[in-house]
Design a protein around this nucleic acid. Structure first.
Length: 883
RNA sequence: GGGCAGUUAGCUCAGCUGGAAGAGCAUUUCCCUUACAAGGAAGAGGUCGCAGGUUCAAGUCCUGCACUGCCCACCA
């Protein structure tokens, strides 16, 4: 067996990612004797390659899947990608633009060919990257939101909702992205503060000289005003309600109305009402039955306005209107004002609210059911702080605009009956899988399909059921066995866009939630706390990290920072530290494997022979329990920390170092005994670590147990308690002594090569026993040649002193000691002891403390005081001695 | 405007049900001691955001405030 001195990730990773795929390690079959544990991957958009956020998201899921598999569950993790609607279409449009081509040049059919071409290229890139990260996905179940099976799910869902009357078409005020040229749903609009102005405009009364001043951030929309609204309780205006105004520049007559929504203290308290281009105004208009005049079309151009403004862009119209108002004396003032502006979440273009004919889904009932599910703990958020905002959102949810005026997506399965000339008849549209044969109303045989496609989130919302064949296979056994899935892991940015809708659709179509646990992880930020984005240029590509530090390091660093619900700042250093850890694991294993050479067989039973054995077994058992608990509660960060701490600071720093004493023994049984424990704990730790660092642990595991199952298919050690509790305290005593001697040596600048003698003046007889029994530990790790125990030992001349672990420790350092240095060191130590004595004495002098605190606590404080006093006494003696 | 997080060592973060302030990185000193210099040993570095309160005891519980970040809202 040859192991490199430094862990070399590249070839090992290549080997194992290939192995898992080829051997179908993570392929799942229905097994009714085993409990399923299922995760469905949040499908990445086929817009390119994976970023750090994906790496985090998939790593966490992989960790959970691998952990559950090793716990004996029948695990399934379903891979897939999302067609990504607008986002993906935009990417391809941009590529075409570079060649000077628009989608209209190509036409719908040709353009879609381009889209499919793109998707087949990038879809595989993403899947390959998931393999590279080591994801234990079932590669026989790769799904795509627009493949045949998923398309059937989408159609079935649409038809079912349509037939139930929940999907309807109507002309409503929608969020329109002029650049993407499509409607958006409410949550696809992102609001951002913007510096702007508040224009105060005078609207004259028709029947008198008076006027009303309105304040607006969008003066150009005044051309479409159909009223001015005031609060019914606003005394400034009560006498004007019902009066008529003459709209400047247009000269249309509009009324003054009252509406409770108007805030008296904002602006002038009078609001211009533009029902066709503002959500609030639209509601006011509904309440007061106002006329709606559309003045902006889907291209962002002015329509239905005086000739002068007709055809201008919104921006041009604004400048012109302001100029004209000013010239005509209607403009009272312009204030600076900051307000939030809605932008398209895919292209950041300002969203224009306008009237448009769209398909809507009535979500009221589904939302209520989702709320109930959350309240009944059928869905549980981790961390739970997301529950409330989630419920609030559902409760206030408005109907979902599901149609998009783009080409890439699921075309709406609605067919319109048309006459011979191709004009739509007045027959009711039909929702169906395929083009209908005959119109049930007029018996006509000609149909056209709706031009629009569905919101990409519609198919995403079906993901947990569509991947199991819902809609394609009426009797899907997979769906029965694997649904509901076990947990959904995702970032909080898509709780509403995706999670909530999946729950709604799960309840609607399966009468059951799609998962109980919703694990919300944070967003990866750069080291300054900024969100990673291409425009900021602070994106860290996971592939670069893998190249530089290895995949396990990438995964470990991500896991370590993945406190549920908290965003994480991640920098190069964290990957470096994780890489160092993987090297540590490698080398500790290498040490053990080197020593295993020539050892034919290990002991079956783990029999502790001495203190260190009992201690490391106890520490390991504690770690095992903590780690399993942390895994179960999705505290992956705690898992990583616990393993790191145990392995490095306990197993490597102490146990391996102490094992070396027995390792050089000429008695093969002694060597075998300690190696048995070393291997037992190493294997256990590798198992705990393998969900996070699957590559390195798989490799070492394989070298260790040539013919056994791979680590991913092994079963975790059971938690047990061997009961060597006193070993912790004893080991602490020994460690205390060793550290104190090391400190003395270090501060006195005694080279590690110099073996020295130590005198232990016994203060605590119990500890004398422990120290004597483990003398070899002290000699080995503190580089001590011999120890003389005794009582009332006089401090030798020219010696260094430390009071530790129940002893006064003297290191005779004839010729090596610097008296002045020793004095200042002791003074410092005595100062610390004095502080301790003061603190503890103060507590004990407090009657209330002695009376009310638990007895054990009081005793502990008393002990501390005694120790401190003793220390002070001893050091004082020494100081005198030095003088 | 409402809600939710966060505020602990120079940086990134741990600190469970309240009982002596922790880790990693960076830094200082010593060491290539045959697993590992991507390492080992030792050290320095914190009035735990501020102000009150509860308690014998508060980083930990309560209240208020400040700052930062995120989410939501019909910010004319």
């Amino acid at each position: 067996m040859d192991m490199d001195k430094v862990y070399n990730s590249k070839e090992i990773e290549k080997k194992w990612s290939k192995y898992w795929v080829e051997n179908k390690t993570f392929s799942a079959k229905i097994d009714k004797n085993k409990k399923p544990f299922t995760i469905v991957i949040p499908p990445a958009n086929v817009t390119g390659s994976l970023h750090m956020g994906h790496a985090l998201n998939t790593t966490l899921q992989d960790i959970i899947i691998r952990f559950k598999k090793m716990q004996g569950y029948n695990t399934l993790w379903v891979p897939g990608t999302d067609h990504g609607g607008i986002a993906t279409q935009n990417v391809v449009e941009k590529l075409l633009k570079k060649e000077g081509i628009t989608k209209y040049d190509l036409g719908r059919e040709k353009f879609l060919e381009e889209m499919w071409q793109w998707r087949s290229e990038t879809g595989d890139t993403i899947l390959d990257q998931l393999k590279m990260i080591g994801c234990g996905l079932d590669w026989d179940r790769v799904s795509f939101t627009m493949d045949e099976s998923r398309s059937k799910s989408v159609k079935k869902a649409f038809i079912q909702l349509f037939d139930k009357g929940l999907i309807y078409r109507g002309k409503r005020l929608v969020n329109w992205c002029p650049r993407c040229s499509t409607a958006l749903s409410d949550i696809e609009v992102e609001y951002e503060d913007e510096k702007s102005n508040l224009w105060h405009i005078k609207y004259p009364l028709r029947d008198s000289d008076g006027y009303v001043i309105v304040a607006t951030t969008r003066p150009e929309t005044m051309l479409g005003d159909t009223a001015v609204a005031v609060n019914p309780d606003d005394e400034r205006y009560t006498h004007l309600v019902g009066k008529t105004l003459k709209l400047p520049l247009v000269n249309r007559e509009i009324r003054i109305i009252s509406d409770y929504i108007i805030n008296k203290s904002f602006g002038t308290g009078a609001v211009k009402v533009t029902p066709a281009h503002d959500a609030t105004d639209n509601e006011i208009a509904k309440r007061s039955s106002l006329e709606t005049i559309e003045i902006i079309d889907i291209n962002g151009k002015m329509i239905n306005v005086p000739a002068k403004y007709q055809g201008l862009s919104v921006e041009e119209a604004r400048r012109q209107v302001v100029k004209d108002l000013e010239e005509a004396g209607f403009l009272v003032k312009i204030e600076d004002y900051v307000h939030s502006v809605g932008r398209c979440y895919r292209c950041s273009t300002k969203v224009e609210p306008l009237m448009s004919e769209q398909w809507f889904l009535n979500v009221r009932e589904m939302s209520n059911k989702a709320v109930d599910a959350a309240n009944d703990a059928k869905t549980v958020f981790h961390p739970q702080s997301w529950k409330r905002p989630y419920i609030l959102w559902l409760e206030n949810l408005r109907d979902w605009c599901i149609s998009r005026q783009i080409w890439w997506g699921h075309r709406i399965p609605v067919y319109y009956c048309v006459d011979d000339k191709g004009n739509k008849t007045s027959c009711k549209p039909i929702a169906s899988f395929d083009k209908p044969k005959e119109c049930p109303q007029c018996k006509g045989k000609n149909f056209v399909q709706d031009e629009d496609v569905l919101d990409t989130w519609f198919s995403s919302a079906l993901w947990t059921i569509s991947v199991f064949g819902w809609g394609e296979n009426e009797n899907s056994q997979d769906l029965k066995y694997f649904y509901p899935t076990s947990v959904l892991a995702t970032g909080h940015e898509i709780i509403y866009l995706w999670v909530a809708r999946m729950v709604q659709f799960g309840l609607e179509f399966m009468k059951d939630v799609p998962y109980k646990d919703i694990f919300i992880h944070g967003i990866v930020r750069d080291k300054h706390g900024k969100k990673m984005s291409k425009s900021l240029g602070n994106v860290v590509d996971p592939r670069d990290i893998i190249e530089k530090y290895g995949t396990d390091a990438l995964r470990f660093a991500l896991a370590q920072s993945a406190a549920p619900g908290r965003d994480m700042q991640i920098s190069e250093e964290s990957f470096l530290a994780a890489r160092n850890f993987s090297n540590k694991v490698w080398n500790a294993s290498r040490f053990i494997l080197m020593n295993l050479e020539g050892i034919d067989k290990l002991n079956e039973d783990i029999n502790p022979a001495e203190l260190a054995d009992e201690w490391i077994i106890t520490e390991f058992e504690n770690t095992l329990e903590k780690v399993k608990t942390a895994y179960d509660s999705y505290n992956i960060d705690a898992v990583a920390r616990e393993i790191y701490d145990f392995f490095w600071t306990k197993y490597c720093d102490w146990y391996i170092e102490l094992s070396k004493i027995r390792m050089i023994s000429s008695d093969i049984n002694v060597k075998r005994q300690v190696l048995s424990i070393l291997v037992y704990i190493l294997k256990g730790t590798l198992q705990l670590l393998s969900p996070i660092m699957p590559f390195i642990t798989s490799e070492i595991w394989q070298i260790l147990n040539k013919d056994e199952k791979i680590i991913a298919e092994s079963v975790f050690l059971k938690i047990k308690t061997s009961g060597f509790f006193e070993s912790l305290e004893k080991m602490k005593t020994v460690q205390d002594i060793i550290v104190k001697i090391r400190t003395l040596r270090s501060e006195m600048n005694i080279s590690p090569a110099v073996q020295i003698e130590a005198l232990f003046n016994v203060i605590d007889e119990n500890k004398e026993k422990t120290a004597k029994e483990n003398e070899s530990y002290i000699k080995q790790l503190a580089k001590i040649s011999s120890i003389r125990f005794g009582k009332n030992i006089e401090r030798p001349k020219n010696s260094a002193l430390s009071v530790a672990g129940g002893f006064e420790i003297f290191l005779p350092l004839e010729g090596l000691i610097d008296i002045e240095k020793e004095k200042s060191r002791l003074s410092k130590e005595i100062a610390i002891a004095k502080q301790e004595a003061e603190r503890t004495a103060a507590k004990l002098n407090n009657d209330n403390f002695v009376k009310r605190a638990p007895k054990a606590k009081v005793e502990k404080i008393q002990t501390r005081l005694n120790d401190a006093n003793l220390k002070i006494e001893k050091i004082n003696e020494s100081l005198k001695f030095l003088k």
